[in-house]
Write a protein that binds this DNA or RNA. Structure first.
Length: 354
DNA sequence: TCTGGGGTCCTATTGCCA
DNA sequence: TCTGTGGCAATAGGACCC
């Protein structure tokens, strides 16, 4: 039952790709961010992080913290290309791995003769071939591996047992572990639980009372670095969507529907290109006060057709009828593989009779 | 000082149906 | 026929991740 998992994380990925394309920027604070008034930082180079700049920070604030920072607009095609190259290198070394997002992966190290040496070789080859630095964490499960890869980045290489992780991060804030975000952090704080050691020792009944029968015990498991070692290969997407935040909030219904059309066209095109279709069409509207509303409708047949998507999406938007200025509108399709059909697909293939 | 875009997963609620 | 119950699908919201 005991597994061995590595988590590989590319360091400051977007910024690193930009630096590899423009070596003259090496050593300078670089941030990758859009240009609009509401743009946020997607990645900051480590030089920029010294100024207190981090991901998800409004770009305007980042510029104020470090006026001399070089701001580069995101170039997602380039990031996808480098990501693909890195994943190919991983695939050449490791049979079973699971890509998460664009810049990280879990690797199943079970049964490897010399897992640490194998990971050293892997990061060396990734650097040689793509000039991307990667941080590696190795542990008995995904949780330990993930926290370990984060512990000494950039260019980190950390191997921990669950017990070592518990000791090392005993006094760390609960938000260190993935799965405890700002909201849970705050609610735990209200119970005077701020460190992982405190969370691990917390009274389970109080946590259940506060967080429910599932999440309560799950929080203690997180703080105990207790988790799954399963690496899921061949993950299939379950939804695809497009959304925009307006530079200025919009009140006109016509303008809103115009943007919805543009997004739906882009979405339909992408769905068709990826050969995906779904039964549930969903819209998302964020108002000026940041309340977010979603509306969805499930239709009888799978679709990736523009006319169908925009018809349903427009009807949902009109039905909702936002009563305040709108800052974001989005449209998505989910339900790619209905349970019934998936069950059928999972049946063993029947070979034609010989 | 206000908070992007693209996702995944979980939970609660509701309505339908056997 | 009435009432209860359990399962399931659809829906809405929200937390979280990179």
């Amino acid at each position: 039952m005991t597994g061995l998992v590595a988590h590989l994380d590319l360091d400051a990925f977007f910024a690193s790709v930009e630096l590899s394309r423009r070596p003259e920027l090496k050593g300078m604070p670089v941030i990758v961010a859009g240009s609009g008034p509401r743009a946020v930082v997607t990645t900051a180079s480590y030089e920029a992080r010294l100024f207190g700049i981090g991901s998800a920070m409004p770009a305007a604030r980042a510029k104020r913290l470090c006026p001399e920072a070089v701001v580069i607009a995101p170039n997602s095609a380039a990031y996808r290309e480098v990501s693909r190259a890195v994943m190919e290198i991983i695939a050449a070394h490791i049979d079973r791995f699971e890509q998460l997002g664009i810049d990280e992966a879990f690797l199943d190290l079970e049964g490897l003769h010399s897992p640490k040496a194998a990971m050293r070789r892997l990061v060396a080859e990734i650097y040689e071939q793509t000039s991307m630095r990667a941080s590696i964490g190795i542990g008995p499960n995904r949780l330990v591996a993930k926290v370990a890869s984060d512990a000494e980045k950039p260019n980190g290489f950390v191997v921990l047992t669950a017990e070592q992780a518990r000791k090392r991060f005993a006094d760390a804030p609960v938000s260190l572990v993935p799965g405890i975000g700002p909201r849970t952090n705050e609610r735990l704080g209200e119970m005077a639980i701020t460190t992982l050691a405190q969370l691990r020792a917390a009274d389970e009944r109080s946590l259940i009372e506060r967080f429910g029968a599932r999440q309560g015990p799950a929080l203690i498991a997180l703080a105990s670095f207790d988790g799954s070692a399963e690496v899921v290969t061949d993950r299939e997407a379950v939804s695809e969507s497009r959304e925009t935040t307006f530079d200025q909030d919009i009140s006109s219904g016509d303008e809103l529907e115009g943007e919805l059309k543009r997004l739906a066209a882009e979405l339909a095109e992408a769905l068709q290109r990826n050969n995906r279709s779904g039964r549930t069409i969903r819209i998302k509207v964020r108002l000026d006060d940041w309340t977010t509303v979603t509306r969805a409708k499930t239709i009888s047949a799978l679709t990736n057709d523009y006319a169908t998507i925009i018809e349903v999406a427009t009807a949902l938007l009109r039905e909702y009828g936002p009563q305040r200025p709108v800052r974001l509108v989005g449209v998505g399709v989910t339900g790619f593989t209905p349970a019934r059909e998936r069950d059928q697909l999972e049946l063993p293939l029947e070979l034609p009779a010989a």
